[in-house]
């Protein structure tokens, strides 16, 4: 059974369609990244999942219950985009409140803040926190009470690379414990290997839903081969490979993924003329661009 199931969910704001027949599922223990440009509809989709705003059409099932129902809210945690808190409260006091709202003991505030690396700042007012620190408070409150579904809206924005790695380590523990996780981002580079599946949203439509490997395969984007020729041999190499020359030594080849091996074979045959070969697969940005641009056509 999937923890979260959306089918043909549609949402319009006036004449603007924010979500267009969106379908997606997240299973228990699965981490799904929701990717899309600003305005693609990520936050809107999450607010519908949380029951904060109603959908205009389609169906949403959250842990077998209706979004926003008591049963769903008891088991769903949310980290809003740009998490905000009361500036006059300390991190510990704010956490104590969230704990009591979930019926959990307030004494867990400190351990939770320690877990997200905020132990030292627990007694300081949130008004003095940096954006990254507020983001961590947001994560800490999302960890309260062993949630079965976590909905995290751009959770790594404002985090430095080290914090981001720590953040994904926590997500891995949660998923290993069977929690379903839906997180959004506007950059594939931020989520890449740390998620199980990637859903790309473009202008309110799902344009891809696959693993990173699957996305890479199906995009069929060309691979680049950089060949470094021996001094003076660049022209010969370029002629032999029927490729363009970048400068006095480098020769660049672009080929479809299925021709990669045969082209490399040709390079190997030129053995004595070639100093080095580098194979550059399509970058994450290229893959993301490929899918998010396809809808425009």
């Amino acid at each position: 059974m999937s923890s979260l199931k959306l089918s043909t969910v549609t949402k319009t704001f006036g004449r603007h369609t924010a979500l267009d027949r969106v379908g997606l599922t997240v299973g228990a223990g699965e981490r799904v990244a929701l990717l899309g440009h600003n305005g693609a509809g990520k936050s809107t989709l999450m607010k519908i999942v949380l029951g904060l705003i109603p959908a205009d059409g389609g169906s949403v099932e959250v842990l077998g219950a209706a979004p926003g129902s008591g049963a769903a809210r008891a088991q769903v945690a949310y980290l809003p985009e740009n998490a905000a808190f009361h500036p006059s409260l300390t991190g510990e006091e704010q956490m104590a409140l969230y704990l009591r709202l979930r019926g959990a003991p307030a004494s867990q505030a400190r351990p939770l803040l320690d877990r997200v690396g905020l132990g030292d700042a627990a007694r300081r007012r949130i008004g003095t926190y940096s954006k990254g620190m507020r983001q961590r408070v947001g994560l800490a409150q999302a960890l309260i009470g062993r949630p079965r579904l976590l909905v995290l809206d751009e959770p790594t924005s404002g985090l430095d690379p080290v914090s981001r790695r720590e953040f994904y380590a926590i997500l891995e523990e949660l998923a290993a414990d069977g929690a379903a996780i839906l997180l959004s981002s506007h950059a594939l580079t931020e989520v890449e290997a740390r998620t199980d599946r990637i859903v790309i949203l473009s202008k309110g439509r799902v344009v891809a839903d696959d693993t990173l490997a699957g996305l890479r395969r199906n995009a069929g984007l060309p691979t680049r081969i950089h060949v470094a020729a021996r001094p003076g041999a660049a022209d010969d190499v370029a002629r032999e490979l029927r490729a363009g020359r970048r400068n006095g030594v480098m020769v660049d080849l672009v080929c479809p993924p299925d021709e990669k091996l045969s082209r490399l074979g040709r390079v190997a045959e030129l053995g004595h003329l070639v100093e080095d070969v580098e194979v550059v697969p399509p970058s994450l940005e290229d893959i993301y661009d490929h899918y998010s641009r396809r809808t425009q056509a």
Partner: peptide
């Protein structure tokens, strides 16, 4: 302050 959406997702 932008604190309302989060508050409303709590089971209260």
């Amino acid at each position: 302050r932008g604190t309302l959406p989060l508050l409303l997702t709590y089971p209260v």
